[in-house]
Every structure is written in C-alpha cells, then in structure tokens.
C-alpha cells in the first residue's frame, strides 16, 4: 500500500507491505540505519525513535500506522551535517558508549526526557533508560552522559525545545 511518512521533517511517499514495521521501513527503504534492530519484539529498545516527540519502539509499529505522525530518528537530531547535538557530545565525553549498538536509542530517550524534564534526578534518568538494554557499558557512563547533557542544556540561553 502507498503511505506518506513525515520523517525528520521531510515528507516521503513510499510503497510498503502493511506488515513492514516502521523499523524495517526506516532501515531498508530510507537508509536511516541509526535505528537498530535488536530483538524485533519489543524488549531491547535498540529500535527507539521519537513518535510525535515521544520515545517508542519502532519494531512494534507497522509503517502504515505511522502515517500522520512526526517521526524523528537519530539522524534527525544533529544540528547540521557533521555536527553533533549536546547530548551526543556528552555521550562522547563521558564514554557513554562502547560498541554503540544501543547508543542512538539511548540518545533519543535522553532527548525525550530532557525536553520534558530539563532537571532530572539520577533516579529519573535511570527510569527513563530502563527500557533500553546495553550489553557493554554497565550503564553508569550513560547516566553520567545524560546528567552532563542536562546540566549543559540548562545553562544554554534558549527555550527548551530548541536547546536539545
């Protein structure tokens, strides 16, 4: 079937089978491979994207269901080509990643959290990433990264939605 998707601010027309998940559609048809396929049944969180600003699992949404919503992937959060967002920078600086498999999802979860709550407690950060599995870092540096990004964003002289 023909669908129209709003991905990272661009409208794209596509032909999909209804059973195509949003995840497969992003990866295979749009070459947006930042959303990773881990378990493909909702448990690992590697496929996280923002759906109307909210972090969701792209493997649990069929592509036709996404028509009419705004989808943001990791490719859509950078301020410009070759640049990194404040959150991405913070992940580099605190060694918030090793293999990087979980990282795009962690960054997007942090993104959704910090738009909603610019001043999260450590417990709120832990809760926000609790649905995302990381097999490498032991999570501590990921939590540090999000806390560092939060601190920097609070200091930025811009409205919240534009800061993150």
């Amino acid at each position: 079937m023909r669908i129209e998707l709003d991905i990272n601010g661009e409208t794209r027309e596509l032909e999909v089978e209804p059973r195509t998940t949003l995840l497969d559609c992003l990866r295979d048809q749009m070459q947006l491979t930042g959303a990773h396929a881990g378990c493909e049944h909702g448990v690992c969180g590697a496929c996280t994207v923002l759906f109307d600003g909210v972090a969701v699992r792209a493997c649990l949404i069929f592509a036709p269901q996404a028509q009419g919503s705004k989808i943001t992937t990791i490719e859509g959060v950078t301020p410009g080509p070759g640049e990194m967002s404040v959150i991405q920078d913070a992940f580099c600086e605190t060694h918030g990643m090793q293999c990087g498999y979980c990282t795009p999802a962690m960054v997007l979860v942090a993104h959704a959290l910090l738009v909603d709550n610019p001043n999260p407690t450590r417990e709120q950060i832990v809760d926000a990433i609790s649905g995302n599995i990381c097999r490498c870092t032991g999570y501590a540096q990921i939590i540090d990264a999000i806390a560092l990004a939060a601190e920097r964003l609070r200091g930025a002289n811009r409205p919240v939605e534009q800061r993150v």
Partner: peptide, 9 residues
Amino acid sequence: IGHAATRAR
C-alpha cells in the same frame, strides 16, 4: 506496567 516506551503506546 512495562517501560515508559511501551506505556507511550
């Protein structure tokens, strides 16, 4: 009930 990301849907 699950995680924030599953409660979102």
